[in-house]
Every structure is written in structure tokens, then in C-alpha cells.
Design a protein around this nucleic acid. Structure first.
Lengths: 227, 227
DNA sequence: ACGCTCAAATCTGTCGACAGAATTGACGTT
DNA sequence: AACGTCAATTCTGTCGACAGATTTGAGCGT
């Protein structure tokens, strides 16, 4: 049992209880530790994590803002139940936003940033040839790429939206997308083409390829959902 | 002094204190009652509205999620200071999202919904010919149109984003955009052309016109900011 | 006058408590 | 065995309190 209170005296871990709780609860929801539709009781979570209800409430309210739980007044909150319709809606939004980010990345990337992108993808390609490649891909590589493109796009609000507010929700739906064999390989190839378009400062092509890349992921998601 | 506690026993007003506070604080920020950059003290607000710090904290945390205040740990929160850069970023995001909504509206609108759109615009046109037209426009007409298009688009997450999470922030920046003479007239004409494109089920044109419409508003905003 | 020091005042983060509403579950009815 | 009732339990929304950190500002030295 890892109560937060026990670790609280570590000076390096000075984050607020609410933030730690939000991270842990988010992770638990994405990983399925809390079943979709199950109720989250404030007193129970408070006891479980060794804190009072105050921080738990604040963390839950943030989960609510991020659409990871649904809340009915005076009836508590329940873990969101992901539906294929939600997935379609979210990936449609993500398609235009990531496309926008890629376009701006092509317009704004410095030579050093393009070098960083290529270095990162080279690392991903190497990692993909090893065992446990899928785990690595799902856990870090995919996010790394999209994070970096969003950052290079130099729109702070867009970055916050893609890599902050919506990040966990996207991850929740991606997690349901059991990796079909070869999907990671294909995704990496798509990443590489996007980076080349950015390196060419071809904003229009960068946006097109990124949108196609997201649409491809969306198709995999929907097909699986209806299968 | 309108404390919330006094009105609490009205059975019709059963909303949670946090929600009421969030609305009132949002409004105060948009209207400039709280100056940009000024600090929001929890005890002071609690006393002012006649409630305890709990609901005030939750309302403030929601303001933070919505980017209406910035927060530094253990230093409280300050009302966001709108910059031209922020405005540009936000309207760039809004452009692709509203364009997406318009495209989907054209794909999904029923005959009845198109009739509703036309009826609404007819009302707006009539209202614009009367005195106080600007106030009416800024307060309701503009939002009405964008709300309805987003709703007809039938993407619940997109609707929530445009008409919920980002609504007040967009309003904050629009409020700084003192209405240039004739802007409301021109905006209404643009709305009318968008509705005709939707009525023709021309998704591509609907998206194009909506994006141009937002871009036009953005240009006005930026020009004024740099003036 | 200006800057520094340090104590007073204020505020944030966290906790525990209570009232009323909602949920659960035992019990009796059909 | 299914259903409705009602009391016991649990939970949410709200409040007040406290410790430690931060900010304020009075007093002092220069």
C-alpha cells in the first residue's frame, strides 16, 4: 500500500497532494484498475491513499474537467465508459489539432529541432527491433513524437490542449487499441515521412500527412471497436 | 451585496455553490471587475460571497483549468493577463475547430435545423437595426450562431470544447475587441453565407467560410492589439 | 531618502466534523 | 420468488480550524 502521506516528507517530492492524486487516479483509470462505470467514493479513496477528502475532491474535479469521469450532483462520480462514438469524436478533433500543430511545426522548426526529431525517430526505429518493442512504443515513443511536434509548433495553448488537457483521454482510447501486428512499424514510417515534410518546410504536406496519420489510427480504433 | 448563502434556500436555485461561484467569478473576470494580474484571495472571496473556502477553492481550480487564472503553488492565483500572442494562438485553434464544426453541420443538418438557423439569423438582422444593437450582438447573437452550428455538427466533445471549456476564454478576448463600426453587420452577412452553404449541404464551402469568418475576427483583434 | 531585517498579518494546503441526501439491505407482503 | 417499504449505512456538499509558508510593513541603519 503506497499511501501518499508516507512519502510526503521526501523533500524532493514537494508536489501538492492534489497533483499526485490526479496522476495516480488518471493512471489507474487509463490502465483499467478502476473499471469503466465504477463509482469513485471520496472517503474510500481518501483512506486508500492516506489523505483527507479535500485533495481527493480536487483531484476528482480535475478528472471531471478532463472527461475521465462523469459526475452527477449528489451522486458521486463514475469512471467514464468509453464508447466507439466517443473515440470517433475525439480522434476527429485530434486530427485537425495535430494537423495544425504539424503545419506550424513546418513553419517554425529550427535546424536543431529537425535534427532532434530525426535523432528521436532513429532511436525509436532501433527500439522497435528489440523484444518488448510494443510496450515501449505504446508507453513512450508514440507520445514523444507527437509531443515534440506540438512543441515545435510554438502554440502554447495548442500544446497544452494536445499534451495536457486531452493527453490522458487520448491515451485512454489508444490503450483500448490493442496493437495490431505491424501497426507500430507502419506508424513509425508515417512519423518519418512527417518529419521529412517538416524538414522541407512543407507546411501543407506536413499537415496532410499528420492528418492522414491520425485518421489511420482512428480507423484502426473504430474497426476494432465494431469487430 | 449579493451573498450566495442568502439565496441558498430558494428551492429553484439548487445549483452547487461551486457552480454559482464559477459563473460569477468568470463573469467578473470577463467584465474586468477583477483587473488582469490582480490576485484572488480565497478568504476574501469566501467572505465576499458569504461561503466558506471550500467551494471558493473548487471554483478557482476550475478557473485555472479554463485558463482564466494562472496559479503558482503556495502563492495563490492571479487573473490572466491577456496578450496579443495568446489571442492569436486561441483564434488559430478556434479557426480549425469551428471550421470542423461547420463542415459536420453541413453533413448532418436536418431541414428543421436549417430552418432554425435561418429564423435565428432573421431575428439577428432585425435586432441589428435597432438601437443598442451592439450590446445585443456582443451579448447573445454572436454566441447563439456559433452554439447552434456546433450543436448541429453532432460532435459532443467538440461542442463541449467550443461552447464549454473554451467559451469564457474566447469571450474574454472578444470582449477586448471593441466593436468597430460595421463589424457586426459584416459578421452577420458572413453568418448568413455560412448558413446558405450548410443549407446546400456543401461541407467544404461551409468549412472554408467559417474559417474565413473566424480569421476575419482574429485580424480585427490583432490589428487592434498592435494599434 | 533608500535599503535591510525581522516580526505581524495573511494566505495556502490540509485536515476533521456535521447535516441532509442518496444508497443499501433487511423485512414483510403478495 | 418478485416487489415494495423503511431503517441503517454511506456519501456528498459545506463548514471551521490549524500549521507552515508567504507577504506586508514597521523599525532600524546608512
Amino acid at each position: 500500500m503506497s499511501t501518499l502521506a508516507d512519502e510526503k516528507h521526501d523533500p524532493a517530492d514537494d508536489r501538492l497532494l492534489t497533483d499526485q492524486l490526479f496522476d495516480q487516479l488518471s493512471e489507474a483509470i487509463v490502465m483499467g484498475t478502476f473499471a469503466p462505470g465504477s463509482k469513485l467514493s471520496e472517503p474510500r479513496l481518501a483512506a486508500q491513499y492516506g489523505v483527507s477528502r479535500g485533495p481527493v475532491r480536487e483531484a476528482i474535479r480535475r478528472l471531471e474537467e478532463r472527461k475521465l469521469v462523469t459526475s452527477a450532483p449528489r451522486q458521486g462520480v463514475r469512471v467514464v465508459v468509453p464508447t466507439p462514438e466517443d473515440a470517433l469524436e475525439l480522434f476527429t478533433i485530434r486530427e485537425v489539432l495535430e494537423g495544425l500543430a504539424a503545419r506550424h511545426a513546418a513553419d517554425n522548426a529550427t535546424d536543431a529541432e529537425i535534427e532532434d526529431l530525426r535523432t528521436m525517430l532513429a532511436g525509436h526505429r532501433q527500439a522497435l527491433s528489440k523484444p518488448d518493442a510494443m510496450v515501449y512504443w505504446q508507453a513512450t515513443a508514440n507520445s514523444d513524437f507527437h509531443f515534440m511536434v506540438a512543441r515545435i509548433g510554438r502554440n502554447q495553448h495548442l500544446f497544452d490542449l494536445l499534451c495536457g488537457e486531452y493527453y490522458t483521454l487520448f491515451r485512454l482510447y489508444r490503450m483500448r487499441h490493442r496493437i495490431v501486428p505491424g501497426r507500430a512499424q507502419r506508424a513509425l514510417a508515417e512519423h518519418e515521412r512527417i518529419v521529412e515534410a517538416i524538414a522541407d518546410r512543407d507546411a501543407e504536406l506536413s499537415e496532410l500527412l499528420m492528418r492522414r496519420h491520425i485518421a489511420s489510427a482512428r480507423t484502426g480504433l473504430i474497426n476494432q471497436a465494431t469487430a
